[in-house]
Computed example of a mutant assay.
Amino acid sequence: MFKRINATKNGKVSFTFEGRSINATAGDTVASALMLAGETHFRDTPVSQSRRGPFCMMGVCFECLVEIDGVPNRQACMVAVREGMSVRRQKGAIGVEVE
């Protein structure tokens, strides 16, 4: 399980993931907040529907793609949490044709 290394004095924010309320610390990325809440499955691959989650945590691998406030293909590791944001798992590759 993931845990925060150091205590922080940043404020708290709340957002939803798949309809579930998640509490986070201001300044956390969506990926880190979700992992701290016990979520590791962020998206499904387009062909095999394999479950994927964060890998690099620095915006290189695209394994953490989610839908944020209705916008698909957002890298959870690169977006800071905001109060009231709505995050959903991404199903496949939105906007990419797969044969």
Rank of each mutant, 00 (worst) to 15 (best):
S32I: 11
V81D: 06
G84W: 03
K91L: 05
N6Y: 07
S48M: 14
V13L: 13
I94T: 15
R82H: 11
R52P: 00
V30A: 08
R82A: 14
R74N: 13
C77D: 01
R51L: 11
A80W: 03
V98N: 06
R89C: 10
L34K: 05
E39P: 04
V98Q: 08
M57D: 01
A37Q: 03
G38P: 11
A24C: 03
F55W: 10
G84H: 09
K91T: 14
G95Y: 08
T16K: 09
T40G: 04
E39V: 15
D69F: 02
E67Y: 00
G19N: 10
I94K: 14
A76Q: 01
E97D: 15
V60M: 13
Q90G: 01
A24R: 05
R52H: 01
T45R: 05
E83N: 05
K9H: 10
D69Y: 09
G11N: 14
R52M: 13
A24H: 01
A33C: 09
V79P: 00
C77H: 02
C56V: 03
V71M: 11
M78L: 15
L36H: 10
Q90L: 02
V87W: 05
N10F: 03
G53K: 01
H41M: 08
M58R: 11
G19L: 07
N6K: 13
R43G: 06
T45E: 13
A31L: 15
F17D: 07
A24T: 02
N6V: 10
F2M: 13
M85T: 05
D28I: 04
R89S: 12
A26G: 01
A37Y: 01
M85F: 04
F2E: 14
E18K: 06
R52D: 05
T45N: 05
M58H: 12
T16D: 02
T25P: 00
E18P: 09
P72H: 11
T25V: 15
H41D: 11
C61S: 10
G59H: 02
A37H: 07
S48W: 12
G84C: 03
S86T: 15
Q90H: 07
N6D: 07
T40V: 13
I5Y: 02
G92I: 06
P54H: 02
M58K: 12
T29I: 07
F15V: 04
D28L: 06
S14P: 02
K9Q: 13
A76V: 03
M85A: 03
R20P: 02
Q75P: 01
N23T: 14
T8W: 00
K3A: 08
V81S: 01
D69G: 09
I68S: 10
V98I: 15
T45F: 00
G11V: 06
R20H: 07
F42R: 04
I68K: 12
T40K: 15
A24P: 00
S14K: 13
M1A: 14
I68Q: 06
K91I: 14
M85C: 04
P46Y: 11
T16L: 01
L65R: 15
M58P: 01
V79I: 15
A80C: 05
F42P: 04
V81A: 03
E39M: 07
V79A: 08
V71F: 09
G27P: 06
R51M: 11
